[in-house]
C-alpha cells in the first residue's frame, strides 16, 4: 500500500489485527469445548497472517494461510473428531496458577527487554541514505560497473539516475524472489534437510497409524 504506508491506516490495521490474534488465542486456552478452541485457533492463525502482510511479508502470509489454516487446523479438527467422547474437554490441570505466573513473568521479561534494547533501525537508515532507500522501497539499478567480481553478491545497487527506469526489485517488494534466491544459495542445506524431515514425518505418521487387524 504505497500511498498510505506509514500513515494511520497501517497503524489502525495493526492494532485491530493484533487484538483479534490475542483475543482468539485467549479463547483457545480458556474454552472448555475443544472444537470451539480449534476454530478460534484457526481464527488466530488468520489474524497472524494479516499481521505478516502488514510486516511486508506477503509470501509468508499466504504460506501461513495455506499451511496453518488450510492443513494444520484441519488436522487438529480431524484428531478432535477421532478422539471424541471426552468428558473433560479442555479442563485445566493442577498447575494452573503456577503456569499463569510463569507465563506472565516470561511475557513481562520479553516485553521489558524489547522496549529497552537498542535496535538499529532500518527506517532511520533509509531516510538518510538514497541508495538504501532505493533498494528498500522500489526501483534501483544494479550497477555492474563498480562490481568487485562476477558473482551476484558483488553487484552493487544504486539509486537509478534521474528519469531513468530502474528495476523494481526492492527488498520487500519481491519477497518471493528473494526467498527463492536464499533457498538455493545461502540456505540450500537446511532446505534439503527440511525435505528429509518432512519425508520422515510422513513415513512415521503412516507407520504409527497402520491398522494391525485386531485393533479398533
Amino acid at each position: 500500500m504505497n500511498g498510505v504506508e506509514g500513515s494511520s491506516v497501517t497503524d489502525v490495521a495493526f492494532w485491530v489485527v493484533s487484538a483479534i490474534a490475542i483475543a482468539a488465542s485467549i479463547m483457545v486456552v480458556t474454552l472448555r469445548d475443544i472444537f470451539r478452541a480449534a476454530l478460534f485457533l484457526a481464527l488466530s492463525f488468520l489474524a497472524v497472517a494479516g499481521l505478516y502482510i502488514l510486516l511486508r511479508a506477503e509470501f509468508l502470509a499466504v504460506v501461513q494461510i495455506l499451511v496453518y489454516v488450510g492443513a494444520i487446523s484441519i488436522l487438529i479438527v480431524f484428531a478432535i473428531v477421532l478422539v471424541r467422547d471426552m468428558p473433560g474437554g479442555g479442563k485445566d490441570n493442577h498447575l494452573k496458577v503456577v503456569a499463569a505466573t510463569v507465563a506472565a513473568l516470561l511475557g513481562a521479561l520479553a516485553i521489558f527487554v524489547s522496549y529497552n534494547s537498542d535496535f538499529t533501525n532500518l527506517d532511520a537508515l533509509e531516510s538518510s541514505n538514497a541508495d538504501v532507500a532505493a533498494a528498500l522501497t522500489g526501483t534501483y539499478d544494479l550497477d555492474a560497473s563498480n562490481a568487485v567480481g562476477d558473482e551476484y553478491e558483488d553487484q552493487i545497487a544504486v539509486a537509478p539516475p534521474e528519469g531513468a527506469e530502474g528495476t523494481e526489485i526492492g527488498i520487500f517488494s519481491n519477497s518471493t524472489g528473494s526467498i527463492g534466491g536464499l533457498f538455493i544459495r545461502d540456505f540450500v542445506l537446511p532446505f534439503e534437510a527440511v525435505s528429509v524431515l518432512l519425508l520422515a514425518a510422513m513415513i512415521g505418521a503412516l507407520a504409527l497409524l497402520r491398522q494391525r487387524g485386531e485393533e479398533s
Binding site: I22, V48, K91, A99, A103
Partner: peptide
C-alpha cells in the same frame, strides 16, 4: 517494540496453555 509486544503476549498465552491444560490436543 509494538510488534514485539504482540509477539511476547502471544508467546505467554501459548506458554500458559501448554503448561496448564490437561488435554494433549489442547
Amino acid at each position: 517494540e509494538n510488534v514485539l509486544l504482540v509477539s511476547s503476549v502471544l508467546f505467554a498465552i501459548g506458554l500458559y496453555g501448554a503448561l496448564a491444560k490437561s488435554n494433549a490436543i489442547m
